[in-house]
């Protein structure tokens, strides 16, 4: 395979006229310091590997909002993005980003949304949540906001955001509030401040996110279907040769061949090709989010 690739790469190099170019890797980040360190080794590795194609160096750019990242992609400032399906949906629709590969972030190929309540709660089904409160993690969260909200709405329930915790729930509606992180989510439910919470199954099972003592007193009332954990996207403007070369490069990386780079890259254990339903999923997500 390498014998076929090398003439290809050489051909690309010759055709492109060896134009000097910087490869830019982007992401939405609330913790830029941490995320930069996670992304940089992979960006530099890729740039080094793609040097024959004119890539001279790599750059990591982080954006506070998905909208900012989308805008940057539209402007052609970002070549390559690693995101959750929810953000990926926006980038595909708003910036014309193209799906490159599925990423096994944190060793997880996919995940599902979980809705839970206190064990002693009278709530046993999603329908019991009407007139009660639920806490999602974050407005950008796929597993802890998009998926559960879509589930609730698909079942015909109307959701109403709460301004703060002290506000009384609106009757006939499912009142929701963002907990900002998994732990608050669990505590609020556990302390009976909020009736139910939504988390992905990985966080639920992680004692650092949901302490075991708390989980013992909580009860799952609903689990969603599984969704890809993360996606690799490239901008609409990225040269096809570079896109192909990057896709090929990433797909070939395994924990054995490039352990350090992968581990640093959000504990990734591997990449796999985009599945046929994946684009539909993104379209659904985007359509739903547009309605909220």
């Amino acid at each position: 395979m390498l014998s076929r690739l090398i003439p290809l790469l050489l051909g690309l190099a010759l055709c492109s006229g060896a134009e000097a170019r910087v490869l830019v890797l982007g992401q939405v980040s609330e913790k830029p310091g941490k995320d930069y360190e996670q992304l940089r080794p992979m960006a530099e590795y890729a740039a080094l590997q793609l040097a024959p194609l004119g890539i001279t160096s790599a750059e990591v750019r982080l954006y506070p909002q998905a909208a900012d990242l989308a805008a940057a992609m539209r402007r052609g400032e970002v070549d390559w993005v690693s995101e959750t399906p929810y953000t990926a949906a926006r980038l595909v629709h708003e910036a014309g980003a193209r799906l490159l590969l599925r990423k096994w972030k944190n060793g997880q190929r996919d995940y599902q949304a979980i809705i839970y309540t206190r064990a002693d709660s009278p709530v046993y089904s999603l329908a019991d949540l009407v007139g009660r409160t639920i806490t999602f993690e974050h407005a950008d969260s796929f597993s802890s906001y998009y998926l559960p909200r879509q589930l609730l709405e698909n079942q015909g329930m109307a959701l109403s955001p709460m301004l703060d915790m002290h506000q009384s729930p609106v009757p006939g509606r499912v009142n929701y509030i963002f907990s900002r992180n998994e732990r608050n989510n669990a505590h609020w439910v556990h302390k009976s401040l909020i009736v139910a919470g939504a988390l992905n199954n990985n966080d639920w099972e992680n004692p650092a996110r949901v302490p075991a003592a708390l989980r013992d007193e909580l009860r799952i009332i609903f689990r969603s279907a599984s969704y890809p954990r993360a996606l690799e996207l490239v901008s609409a403007t990225l040269e096809p040769e570079l896109m192909t070369a990057l896709q090929y490069l990433l797909q070939r990386m395994t924990p054995e061949s490039a352990p350090d780079v992968l581990a640093r890259y959000e504990h990734t254990t591997g990449f796999e090709p985009i599945l046929p339903d994946d684009m539909q999923l993104l379209n659904d997500i985007y359509q739903s989010s547009r309605a909220w």
């Binding site: 915790m165 900002r180 992180n181 732990r183 505590h187 302390k191 401040l193």
Partner: peptide, 10 residues
């Protein structure tokens, strides 16, 4: 505290 942000408090 106002936000009952237990994780932050913790």
């Amino acid at each position: 505290l106002y936000l009952q942000d237990f994780s932050e408090i913790q």
